[in-house]
Design a protein around this nucleic acid. Structure first.
Lengths: 225, 225
DNA sequence: GATTAATATCAACACACGTTGATATTTGAA
DNA sequence: TTCAAATATCAACGTGTGTTGATATTAATC
């Protein structure tokens, strides 16, 4: 049941990073837990956040349980409630794309019109495939958008106010351009859904470069008509 | 046992001629319900299916409760369990796109290469926007794909074995064409997600024709390179 | 009319969930 | 040292869930 949390704890941190040491003790032994505060520097809060991000991104909001998150982090469920006071607040704390990843995505819109289709396609899809820090919050929002209006709003905001706005900083600012950027983003989200959520074989089994090569010319037509 | 379910769901939304006792009793009166079998010809099973399809398509699998479906259909929850023996089986009975709607989508791939981008885009998006019989099962699968592997598999099958296969009947059958059809479908799914699930304003507020006009040339590039 | 099967409701089960209050242990400062 | 705050667990609560078994009412068949 454990997800890509190990990778994550190596990469570590997100917008909530406190800049302290890592080492991330995963629990797998059914140890008879001692009761009080643990000795040494405490990093449990971060472990809970990582576990929550991983769970929410794979199971969605409703199907993710506080108890499961707590178990993943090797912690009692009540402690999770003590840190973040409700499941809703924990979800909110988890859904934020780190600025660095966002910048990498929006920078792709800059540059000559010639290669814009490929640049944008590659930036977004590669970020999603290789950067758990960027993809997990996005997947959490996407999956959460189904059940939680909060998540839909957050994803809307990310796409609209951050990704698309960041794109338009490098483009013209008329209604037509806005629409084209919106449709292009939607298309790329579709490819992400097909690959990572639904896992349609034709799209999911192909190497990412093949997908990019196929997709880019269509995006080019859309973005540089 | 979903034997008769598919047939029934095809018959259902005919908007006219239900033959005999229509009535369509939606709950609105807090009537003290009588207990046994209701008089007249019974159509409750269909009402349950309709309510379930609507619920699953808007709330997703996990958040949809048997009790809510039963209430929508004006029926006791236990009766739902008697008809379909579990929530899983009810979900399975609901997720099937009627053949007529499917045919309308796949037929669009037929014809001259010139207009294929627009034809396909229009067929899929319009079917989704105007035809609840087609869109509700699809949305149910899409929303369910997050939490239920069953739903992801069903949606995979629909896209892969039905929609894409139906498309390829009218096209060449090499690996490259298959990939292009897959990517095109994924892109259109992305637009559906942006409009109907996440409701990104830039894409969702525009009239459908504007979206189609913008999208079609990109699909054309992809499908007739 | 009598029997049987289908349709319907009701009451309750066991279980998992989010959440809470009491309590134990450690840390860090006074 | 002393003591409050932070960190941790435990036991339990109320609620809502899918599901079940008993039972009532009607329709269809003989």
């Amino acid at each position: 049941m454990s997800t890509g949390a190990d990778i994550l704890s190596v990469i570590m941190g997100s917008t909530e990073d406190r800049g302290i040491g890592m080492s991330a003790d995963r629990e797998d032994a059914p140890a008879p837990r001692r009761r009080g505060r643990r000795p040494g520097q405490t990093e449990t809060r971060q472990a809970v956040l990582n576990a929550a991000r991983a769970r929410f991104s794979t199971d969605g909001f409703t199907a993710t349980t506080i108890r499961a998150i707590a178990a993943d982090a090797g912690v009692d469920a009540a402690l999770v409630m003590q840190f973040f006071k409700s499941k809703d607040e924990l979800f909110g704390a988890v859904m934020s794309v780190p600025p660095a990843a966002l910048e990498r995505m929006t920078d792709a819109w800059q540059g000559p019109r010639d290669g814009i289709g490929e640049r944008v396609t590659r930036a977004l899809l590669e970020a999603f495939e290789n950067d758990a820090e960027a993809s997990e919050p996005l997947l959490a929002m996407l999956r959460g958008a189904i059940a939680k209006e909060q998540a839909a709003a957050q994803l809307r905001d990310f796409l609209e106010a951050r990704l698309m706005k960041g794109a338009q900083a490098h483009l013209r600012d008329d209604a037509d351009t806005r629409l084209r950027v919106g449709v292009a983003s939607a298309m790329l989200v579709g490819i992400i859904v097909a690959r990572s959520v639904v896992r349609v074989p034709t799209v999911a089994d192909e190497p990412l470069d093949t997908i990019i090569t196929t997709t880019a010319p269509a995006l080019q037509t859309l973005l540089a008509p």
